[in-house]
């Protein structure tokens, strides 16, 4: 992945000459100074408004605060992992439906995909939280958050998978058919595994969206990181410090997911599609 980034930079910017190098050096120093000034201003504002007072931060020295946040963090994790799993499977199913030659199946799949892609996940959550009980269906809070988040993500993932399947060269399918694989086996043994590798970066960014979507769990009072953070805020009457810490935890989680994606991209190693296979001359 890092090699890829370098080559991308090389493609965007040509190798600098002496004047550009001097200019780059000057701008680096100037921007560094500006960033430092900005940070200093933020800290000063915090200090002036009393946000750095001990009463807003002291409770972070207590283990119980962290235990409570950890509990919320685990809640977020369980919802995110479950939702990710469901949406991956559902995404593949919807993609297969969308590409089906049987017209009603493809039309219905398409409508479902567009619906879940188009509707905000908060609205879906309200539907499960407020809508379903009116027809006598009561779900536990865990499912009231997990199902809508899964549905919202599966619509996007179906399209991501479809793009991946389309990106697998046609010759792969032809070769699979020519050795006698059935169309079904061709899809599951040859096309989908390659499509998955192609879409890993998009999959990971969608996973980040899932994690962020879980934050509306407070709507259904499911104890995730966000909800527990809110409880801490009321208990200690401290908005800024708690939200700051919570935000940092979310950033760390999503940073970890990104690192995972980089590791996965490395693990799949060599470019799986050689240039010659892609563009025969």
């Amino acid at each position: 992945m890092s090699a890829h980034t370098t080559s991308m930079r090389d493609a965007l910017y040509e190798a600098p000459g002496p004047r550009t190098r001097r200019l780059t050096a000057i701008l680096t120093i100037v921007s560094l100074v500006l960033v430092c000034i900005g940070l200093a201003l933020v800290v000063r504002q915090f200090y002036v408004t009393g946000q750095l007072d001990a009463k807003y931060w002291a409770f972070f020295a207590q283990w119980s605060t962290w235990a409570y946040l950890l509990e919320g963090f685990l809640g977020t994790l369980v919802v995110a992992v479950t939702a990710a799993g469901i949406s991956l499977v559902l995404g593949v199913v919807l993609m297969l439906g969308r590409t089906s030659p049987i017209m009603p199946i493809s039309v219905v799949s398409r409508v479902i995909i567009d619906f879940f892609r188009g509707v905000p996940s908060l609205l879906l959550i309200y539907f499960f939280f407020l809508g379903l009980p009116t027809i006598g269906l009561y779900l536990p809070p865990f499912w009231m958050i997990t199902i809508p988040v899964s549905l919202a993500a599966s619509g996007v993932l179906a399209e991501v998978f479809r793009a991946g399947v389309n990106a697998v060269p046609k010759g792969q399918t032809e070769a699979a058919l020519s050795i006698g694989l059935t169309p079904g086996k061709t899809m599951f043994k040859i096309v989908l595994p390659q499509a998955l590798r192609i879409v890993i970066p998009s999959l990971i960014s969608q996973l980040v969206v899932v994690v962020k979507d879980t934050t509306v769990a407070y709507v259904v009072s499911y104890p995730d990181l966000m909800q527990n953070g809110r409880v801490l805020i009321t208990t200690h009457d401290s908005v800024v410090s708690v939200y700051l810490v919570t935000a940092i935890i979310y950033i760390l989680v999503n940073f970890a997911i990104n690192q995972l994606s980089i590791a996965m991209a490395r693990r799949s190693g060599n470019p799986i599609i050689s240039r010659t296979t892609e563009n025969p001359t």
């Binding site: 060269p169 010759g171 792969q172 032809e174 070769a175 699979a176 058919l177 020519s178 050795i179 006698g180 694989l181 059935t182 040859i190 595994p193 390659q194 590798r197 799986i272 599609i273 050689s274 010659t276 296979t277 025969p280």
Partner: peptide, 19 residues
């Protein structure tokens, strides 16, 4: 599928299974 299995095919662009 069975008939295809009985007739080999070699393509211009090789089409080896990349993964």
């Amino acid at each position: 599928a069975q008939m295809r299995a009985e007739i080999g095919m070699v393509f211009q662009s090789f089409n080896l299974f990349a993964h």
